[in-house]
């Protein structure tokens, strides 16, 4: 983890249907760190993640204020190319969602959209991405089978490989393991530890324990307010705020 700031969120307010979901948020994401943003349901964690690559644009009835700076450039400014932004800041969703096509075509989907046609290059990208997502060994003999027949855990690693093929800078993970068995979960967590050397990762973990296991720093969000942020070990060992310690120890949430 370096001290370089990758994403800087400044005075960010987010409203959904006139309801304030995120309030006056200031938060930095540093380069090559794993930042977990955790909190109980409806705390704005997923919304924050989706705002970082403007997936929130797809939801009608949202209103935002403030700045989100990626390498110093406001991603909310109108001259941003959204396709480019989403390739740079890519997301894995809570529900593993392969597209109804082969494993190969799923991973090659993003590169093809951006105009890559060279077969050799595509094959190389697909293999490299599947390897980084710790899925290659399981699927290398059936790349042209449908991705719909993979298990849930494999599908989620495929989704990870699919965004790695975009060569992103930031990876957003929205409860990537919530429906998965412990073995698949540990495989995904294992790949994350390797990935942070190349990428900046923001994860909304599906439980407090995962935040403790995988992240360098942790940010606790409660009802749209950032309660505290710091090194994961510190937040977990000596939370500064009583609400954080109550949540971590399971007194609510």
């Amino acid at each position: 983890m370096s001290e370089q700031t990758k994403i800087s969120i400044r005075d960010f307010n987010f409203f959904y249907a006139k309801k304030e979901v995120i309030r006056a948020l200031n938060l930095d994401v540093r380069e090559n760190e794993i930042l977990s943003v955790f909190g109980p349901a409806n705390s704005g964690t997923t919304t924050l993640l989706r705002a970082l690559n403007r997936m929130t644009d797809l939801t009608p009835g949202v209103y935002m204020e403030g700045e989100i700076l990626l390498d110093g450039k406001n991603i909310r400014s109108p001259d941003i190319n959204i396709s480019e932004l989403r390739r740079k800041v890519s997301m894995v969703f809570e529900v593993p969602t392969p597209l109804p096509m082969s494993i190969f075509d799923n991973v090659a989907y993003g590169p093809r959209l951006s105009g890559v046609k060279n077969r050799v290059l595509l094959e190389h990208t697909v293999e490299e991405s599947l390897q980084m997502a710790v899925l290659w060994d399981e699927v290398k003999d059936r790349l042209h089978n449908s991705a719909m027949r993979l298990s849930g855990g494999q599908q989620q690693r495929l989704c990870l490989a699919r965004i790695l093929a975009l060569h992103p800078e930031v990876i957003l993970l929205d409860r990537p393991c919530s429906g998965l068995d412990p073995v698949s979960t540990s495989k995904i967590e294992e790949s994350l530890r390797h990935l942070k050397e190349k990428f900046t990762i923001v994860i909304v973990p599906h439980n407090v324990q995962q935040a403790g296991r995988v992240s360098d720093r942790a940010a606790f969000l409660l009802m749209g307010d950032l309660i505290e942020v710091g090194l994961t070990a510190e937040v977990f060992a000596n939370p500064k705020d009583k609400r954080t310690s109550d949540y971590i120890t399971g007194r609510f949430g």
């Binding site: 997936m55 989403r86 390739r87 529900v95 969602t97 959209l113 699919r162 965004i163 975009l166």
Partner: peptide
């Protein structure tokens, strides 16, 4: 609907 989200999230127009 998730197919649309996935495609948009991968930079699709």
């Amino acid at each position: 609907p998730m197919y649309r989200e996935v495609s948009f999230s991968l930079g699709g127009t």
